[in-house]
Simulated scan of single mutants.
Amino acid sequence: MSTHSETRPVTFLTEDRLAIQTMVREFVAKDVLPVANELDPVQGEIPMELRDKMAELGFFGILIPEEFGGLGLGVSEYAIVVEELARGWMSVASLIARGQQFAHGFSAGQREQYLPRMARGEFLSAFALSEAEAGSDVANISCRAEREADGGWRITGQKMWCTFADGSDYLQVFARTEPVDPAHRSHGITCFLMPKERGTLPAGVTGNPVRKIGYHGWKTWELAFDEARVEPGMVVGEEGRGFRVAMGDLVIARIHTAARAIGLARGALEDSISYAATRVQFGRPIADKQAIRFKIADMATRIEASRALLHRVCADHDAGAPRDQLNLQASMVKLHATEMAEHVTSEGIQIHGGAGYTTDFAAERYWRDARLTKIFEGTSEIQMKIISDTLLGR
């Protein structure tokens, strides 16, 4: 039984998009789910072979223009791919963003140099923005960069929550290059690129993996910068205006998170349907029990509602809707989909009963990862503030 609508208005799921969806769905079933089921319970890392297959399929270049070797597709296609990948393993769905997000601040020369490598999956990023005292309060960062005589920089300070710091090809680091202006706290932050070898941290950078409860497949790091060198020409965007770089892709980032949340919820729903059909209690499959049937009905309806909103936001984005409208819509879909995902994945564990509380089934993985979607890319509370401020004024 399919849990994903097969009949859709051609306004969104065109033949080309359906072909993409089918291709990714087959890839997930064959290459992602078996790996996730084996490695996530033991906190193993995404294999390089899987990353290479994703690169061959063009997943790292979905949003990168064709002139730079990407696919030149829209956010709509991106969301379709992300949902399918997250249905298998959210970390894999997250990995594809490391090749195509945050490039909007690049100069023409940086785009020419880096985007083709990003599209091939050869130049993947780790985002070093947050700090222990600067979670949602991004403007509160204290990590500092001092200019050197040759135009390079030295970075000193601490960073938190830098996922993929070791496996990436470069760090994107945000540091203060000017004193804090109390009236404009976001001013004076600069974005830097720090290329490095995969499997290592840059010279002058040390770190410890965060002991997280989910989001396995890669490590998330606490980093210490001790006069770490940044070469000349590695500033992204305007010096002192790195906050714009950090915030510039939040619409796509929140669409990405909503799609991940929907994929997780769909995994919980589909696994629950399968389990309920085979789990027998009191002489009958539990799928015959009204309590279970109503849970399934509620889960499916919530997923469909979130997906419909996601597709609306994606279509508006690709049609060139005004930025203010997209900021509002992206917060709405991020809020709705992630809250939905936590509920649906929790219900998935309930349907699995005691088995759902073991690592023998993927139900607990979907639940652990769904809980994170309510936190990163702006917490649910941040989204509600954005939405209410937009509708009611600050």
Rank of each mutant, 00 (worst) to 15 (best):
R394D: 15
W367Q: 12
A363T: 06
P232H: 04
G237R: 08
I382N: 13
H104D: 12
G61L: 12
W367D: 09
G263L: 00
H4F: 15
I155A: 03
C143L: 15
H187R: 14
V10P: 03
A370D: 04
T257V: 11
Y78N: 10
T257D: 07
R260C: 14
Q110Y: 06
L124H: 00
D271A: 15
V138C: 04
I20P: 02
F282E: 15
P179C: 06
Y357M: 14
V245K: 00
P9D: 13
D389S: 14
C191T: 15
Y366A: 05
L193Q: 12
F59L: 13
K374Q: 14
L392S: 12
G267R: 10
N327S: 08
E122S: 04
L85N: 06
I286K: 06
K159Q: 02
L95Q: 12
S136W: 04
I273Q: 02
A261W: 05
E178P: 05
D324A: 15
A128Y: 03
Y357V: 08
V210E: 14
H343Y: 15
R154D: 07
E77M: 00
A321F: 12
V173F: 01
D369C: 04
R302A: 11
M194G: 08
D324N: 12
A276V: 06
A19I: 04
E239K: 10
A149N: 12
H216W: 15
E122R: 09
A321N: 11
G263I: 01
G353A: 01
D16L: 05
L33E: 15
T345S: 10
I252D: 07
H104A: 13
M332T: 09
S272I: 02
E197R: 11
W218L: 14
G157D: 01
E178I: 02
V235H: 06
M247W: 13
G207V: 08
